[in-house]
Design a protein around this nucleic acid. Sequence first.
DNA 1: CGGGCGGCCATTTTT
DNA 2: TGGCCGCCCG
Length: 744
Amino acid sequence: MNSNSSVLAGLNEQQAVAVTHQGGPVLVIAGAGSGKTRVLTQRIAHLISSGISSPSQILAITFTNKAAQEMRERVISLVGGVGEAMWISTFHSACLKMLRSNAERMGYKASFSIYDDRDSRRLIERAIISNGLDIKRFTPRATQGIISAAKSSLGGIDEVIESGGIYGNKFGAIFREYNERLLAANAMDFDDLIVNACNLLKNFEDVRDYYQERFRHILIDEYQDTNAAQNAFVLLLGNKYQNVFAVGDSDQSIYRFRGADPSNIGDFEKAFPNSDIVVLEQNYRSSQTILDAANSVIAKNQTRKPKRLWSDKGNGSLISLTIAMNEYEEARWVAREILRFKTHGISYSDMAVMYRTNGQSRVLEEAFAGSSIPYRVIGGTRFFDRQEIRDTLAYMRMVANPDDEVSFERVINTPRRGIGEKAMAQIALYSRVHRISLFKTLKYVDQLGVSKKAQNGLGEFRMLISHLEDQASAGESPKILLEAVLEKSGYRAMLESDHSVESEGRLENIGELASIAAEHEDLESFLEHCALTSAVDESGEMTSVSLMTLHSAKGLEFKNVFLVGLEEGLFPHSRTMEEALDLEEERRLCYVGITRAKDNLAISYALTRTQWGSQREGMPSRFIHEIPAELLDKVDLTGFANFDQSAFVSTERRTFRDTQSFNYSTSTEISAPQSMSTEDSLKNESTGAQNLGLAVNDTVDHARWGVGRITKIEGKGDDMRAEIRFKDGVTKRFLLAMTPLSKL
DNA sequence: CGGGCGGCCATTTTT
DNA sequence: TGGCCGCCCG
Ligand SMILES: Nc1ncnc2c1ncn2[C@@H]1O[C@H](COP(=O)(O)OP(=O)(O)OP(=O)(O)O)[C@@H](O)[C@H]1O
């Protein structure tokens, strides 16, 4: 069967051109919602069903694992059959797969560990310290930024030295040591996965030949967010047959901060001089109103080529703009709207709330819980970031790769085995001198020069790991191994013995990890899953509202979208407001957010917001002003929004006098004290409570919350804070200078 | 050596 | 808000 109806169904002319392109390099450039992902997916289906390509000749790159999985399912539903042979994955997964098969060539063992951000930062910290540098001056975070930027642009030590400025040589030394430690630990960081895969292809002709022959068709989604190393990977693989199909939208490039380089799009034509360009202009997702708003925001970017994008879905409803007193009121308003939409037949799973920073989810979660709205937070504090999960996985990694330095340090003394700083220093010394890994030094435990107690602990640890290694090489499943780790290491016993609610939660999480382990045949695939599965990948079939950052929202779509916290300093974020290029990236992020909505878009901001314990007054985001006023339907919950830009005088803004009544009816107990402290701070008055000589266990009376007992005092003078546990069991924290308290 | 506590810090976005 | 460091006591 050749050109097939199901594969071409639901495509416009331009889309069909792209899908059925006869081969050679193709670049699809198109705005949001124009069907880029659909085209890419259906092209895979077309290649297979028309017999042009077999599934095993397909390499498709997506931005997240979840997108990969969905694409695979979609292709299978179009052409049937088993899709196992296709490689549809993220860059990182694809590179990892190649590296596992060829690790020895690169000087690694096949069982190498993958270091995520935090593992890598920890190792960088070790490298900084062992260079005799101060981690206050050379912060691991900043150093990691420099190193990662160099790696992801395929640079080496020279680039690190250069971006290190006057301390270039120091950063260079750190960089060198970090890489040495990685190699010694048989570990790669995220950037290494890409860089090493490139080097593998570059340096080994036979490997390159193999993969070039194998992947006759290479397709890349979200091309605008590839970095130099990823791009090099694509070019290396695609060089021979040049069947490279890339889709992207430079207006949706939002990862420049981590090395993504949208100029890869422009360079595509240079790399493949005979490439064909396909432009898609019809948006099938959003109403014209939403599209107009998005187009007019993004038009403010200077460094951009204008682009046409239209929709025939009709104007739809206006975009609502809501002004709230504070973030609590904003969240309650979102909750009310969600319930309202629900009664109009829109299901929870068709709605999403998007924000700039993860920290904003908390208040929303509280409001949703209070309104019994089912919700899911996508991303945020990830499951795999929890301490107990990291600890358990560190044990598992030790089993797979005993040379793993970061994992060793993590668990050598968890639970306590009497190994302190002193013993660790001795181990590190021995490992340096004898050029063996930390774990291997344990063979010579009596030569390390550590206390008897530490020797015992170390011996115990060594037996534990080697016993587990035996089990692993005997082919025990990850589930069994995990069980053995928990039991034999004493980790479970440690948690069980303390009987706290916290430990119970940790045990539950570990239980969850065990069920993930049960889904995997071997240790390697389990660890791989844990290393590369990001929070965004968690499945979300349930009928719940989604909460996520704007970054996580890329590529998704919802009927109703709430964009919250549109305040100067938050969005655009204060860290981006100085550099024009950073600000443009924020604007693209706004464009991405707006264009996630199909039917209804609601944006909102709060006049005050509590950040780092203190209140901040917010100005409406410039992005709001960049949306034509006639597309907005303004609702002022506060009565005194200072949103008096000329564009908005037409709406029914209440006068300041009205606010004296202060009866924004929806406010409940949560916002009242908020507004009270706002008033206080505005008047710059102190309640004097910091001078009452309060101490822990004093009983106090709070003007709004009633009687309670002080459980904690910190800070002094005007900065004194108290934690008070009220009679109803609620615990709250206050800045005393602003709190109406009396001592009882 | 280990645990607990106070105080200081910084605090964007993530494969 | 929490993560981390330094300090103190058992
Ligand atoms: N020809 C078409 N007819 C009807 N619907 C279409 C057509 N093409 C795409 N769509 C729909 O439009 C929506 C957006 O498509 P898709 O996600 O592929 O766009 P995209 O360009 O990848 O978007 P973005 O870049 O914003 O993530 C999807 O719901 C898709 O099913």
